[in-house]
Design a protein around this nucleic acid. Structure first.
Lengths: 159, 159
DNA sequence: AGTGAAAAACAATGGCG
DNA sequence: CGCCATTGTTTTTCACT
């Protein structure tokens, strides 16, 4: 499924640099990795069309925007048929406060990372959005008290 | 702690637009929200220096880069003194495969989101990096089988 | 607070070593 | 396959409203 594109050391350095700071210009990256700006430009385009670079995002501060609570919500469904799964997937995708959603190994079926303004917002999310869904059997939430690390940077240096 | 900057509807629209796609030009954003490019530029700078925009990132595809396994690792420490906490924080920050780390409510002290090439990599991470740490009492990992959603976009539309 | 135009910086393309 | 030069865009600053 994941057709691995062949990447030379230059590509990896470009990716690492853009992952760290996407506002860097091709010239800056070029001088960093000892390559001309035009080459960086061409390689970037290739990496973008190949899907290695999925998109460019502005990383916003939740705190500054009034999102004080990050929580991880484990969900189990009562019946594990395909229809329920599809519906639950659609539900998670439609809920804006759901930042990430995964099917998991272990005792819970899904793990959701949610971002809400406060504990009241988390309660509303669980009671109004999650529990009413017919297939949801059990919900168990843990609240992040302190964010120790929030990088989301793939370790390309040691590839 | 989180000094909320006062943001007018224009600012929120700029933030939402950049969060969705940071490669948009000031002109594009300007026409989208009916504002001149120069105004978008100035507001952007203000939002950047205020820390509302933390950084610009290239979002890379883990699959294309050989990172097939995402896992969530719950960690409990045996002694909860300050020194152990600080050391564990440093450890998580120094480990490149740790994407996110939080102190949590509930039965585990920490939750780590890690990204590794394969299950062997996860095993190595737990056995070589995590368990040798003196204060680590218990480690319990769940592996993401399928990624349903991976947006990490704050819901600014409904603020 | 906002716009519009000019200047500087940048990206992307085509040709050349 | 990589570097240099040209062209077209984009950002940013300044004067004005």
């Amino acid at each position: 499924m994941a057709s691995t594109v062949d990447l030379d050391p230059f590509d990896l350095k470009i990716l690492a640099s853009l992952q760290e700071d996407a506002s860097r210009t091709n010239q800056e990256i070029g001088t960093l990795i000892h390559l001309s700006a035009s080459q960086v430009s061409r390689r970037r385009q290739r990496l973008e069309t190949a899907g290695v670079i999925r998109r460019y995002r502005a990383d916003l501060s939740p705190d500054h925007l009034g999102f004080g609570v990050i929580a991880f919500v484990g969900v189990t469904l009562d019946t594990h048929n395909n229809e329920n799964s599809v519906r639950f997937h659609e539900l998670t995708r439609s809920l804006d406060c759901v930042q990430e959603a995964y099917t998991m190994t272990g005792d819970m079926d899904y793990l959701l990372k949610v971002c809400v303004p406060d504990l009241k917002g988390l309660s509303k999310f669980i009671n109004n959005d999650l529990l009413p869904h017919q297939a949801v059997e059990n919900v168990r939430s843990s609240i992040a008290m302190e964010t120790i690390k929030d990088e989301n940077q793939l370790p390309l240096g040691k590839v």
